[in-house]
Design a protein around this nucleic acid. Structure first.
Lengths: 253, 253
DNA sequence: CACAACAATTCTGCTAACAATCTTTTCGAC
DNA sequence: GTCGAAAAGATTGTTAGCAGAATTGTTGTG
């Protein structure tokens, strides 16, 4: 169903209630699905801090880990480079990409603009079943937050936004939103999953559902625009050095 | 200098006064430069209608044409797929991507939003030498338009926008603009190069320079927002069928 | 003649080995 | 001991060939 921009981001593996990858499951896939699955597995490693910024990604090691050929793993790394999660330097390899504070703020600023625009274009009113779908995802998200299930939180959060913006008639706009959301995973890291932040996200999602229910577009636009504000404040400056490919010279971890 | 989003779009090959590619020149390149050069050569073929929508791109033929290995050509095709200029289907190959009228309108709508936002964030006033740089590019663009040099028109038009938005402090925003601009090359095709349209572009560029010179931000934002409007009207509906991968079943050209 | 099964062809996907490059270590001169 | 050059090691980049999928062409049967 990918009709406008680049490769599909709507892979079945992105279902919010899908369990973590297991090696045997990955090994049963082929072709594009395999590449996508590995890219997403690595993406989760980055999101949850199992792979840290500037950490090297050795093709041979990773292909051994996933039990795939290096060829496939290279493709996954290329995909992650396009998504901005990985930085590749010729003849030197790949590292988890590190964003400076300025870059994070820039990306978030663009996200605010395009998400507000999407809210402006959303087809209102929603059908009752569409509202119900949003509520169901959000209940799952809230529950995941209760029990501290970071992976479920992460995925159901994505699902919420996907479900909401799927009602935006401009697919090109939605794909820009998805692209930027995925880029933001590079600096989302586990540190932003503080209780205080999680509560804000939940409240904000329920407020969005409420605005949708009452077809209050003005409020919806404001909510979508301001939704990212605290994320930016939670960004840790612990890796606040500027990007530098020469970082590859020193190995780590 | 690519610091925020995906691969660099600011390749030296994109200089506006650079002559057309010649095979021997391409053959002298290596690595990333080679991939980028081939991708850009194919991009120009698409822009100028030498490659038409739905036309098949056979890896072996093209690699023979450019005198490179199939491996390199595959990389170029992958790049063009990310940019939305080419559509690839597993085990079937690549075709020049065809956008529906709706998709074109959607992309243009997003471009208007992000370019207006960039205008809003532009650092004003410009230094005199920055204004001079814009004027120089635009004089080149106008001259190219006079003599009907489509390639020079195309490239200097890109250079104008790059030069203008290089003063936007938000690099992530500029990269979204560049990405969408490059996508639009898929439907730019030679048909939009009508005298009437070319004149509009030139007038609009001089108006932008004028607004920059007087640091009139409000007018600048309006100009950037409305700058794409006629392009959309010029889009020919001659290929107005919806996208369909099964189009690969029937060969053409 | 229509149609289905099968065969041949075309083209892409993938593998494994090799080459090129960068990094680290070693060794010797000062 | 320090510096620099050269060798060794680690890692990525590239090549050629084969495997596999999709398409096209052909043949045989009703």
């Amino acid at each position: 169903m990918d009709t406008t921009l680049n490769r599909s981001h709507d892979h079945p593996l992105y279902q919010y209630d899908k369990p973590a990858y297991r090696e045997e499951e990955i090994r049963s896939l082929r072709g594009d699905d395999l590449r996508v699955a590995i890219a997403e597995a690595l993406e989760e490693d980055i999101v949850f801090g199992r792979l840290l910024p500037k950490e090297r990604l050795i093709e041979e090691d990773l292909s051994a880990r996933f039990g795939v050929k290096r060829y496939v793993l290279r493709q996954a790394l290329e995909e992650l480079e396009w998504l901005g999660l990985v930085q590749r330097v010729r003849n030197r390899g790949s590292v988890v990409r590190l964003y400076s504070v300025k870059e994070v703020e820039d990306i978030n600023a663009v996200r605010e603009v395009v998400e507000a625009e999407a809210a402006r274009q959303l087809k209102l009113p929603f059908a009752p079943e569409d509202i119900a779908a949003l509520e169901k995802i959000q209940e799952y998200h809230s529950a995941a937050s209760e029990r501290g299930d970071l992976r479920a939180i992460f995925r159901s959060n994505i699902a919420f936004h996907k479900s909401l913006f799927s009602h935006c008639p401009n697919k090109a706009l939605v794909e820009v939103i998805d692209l930027l959301a995925r880029k933001s995973h590079a600096y989302r890291s586990i540190f932003t999953n503080k209780a205080e932040y999680l509560r804000w996200v939940i409240d904000s999602h329920w407020a969005i559902i409420d605005a949708v229910r009452s077809s209050d577009r003005e409020r919806l636009v404001l909510l979508c625009r301001s939704h990212l504000a605290p994320a930016k404040n939670h960004y840790i400056e612990m890796y606040s050095t500027p990007n530098d490919p020469s970082a590859l010279r020193t190995s780590q971890s």
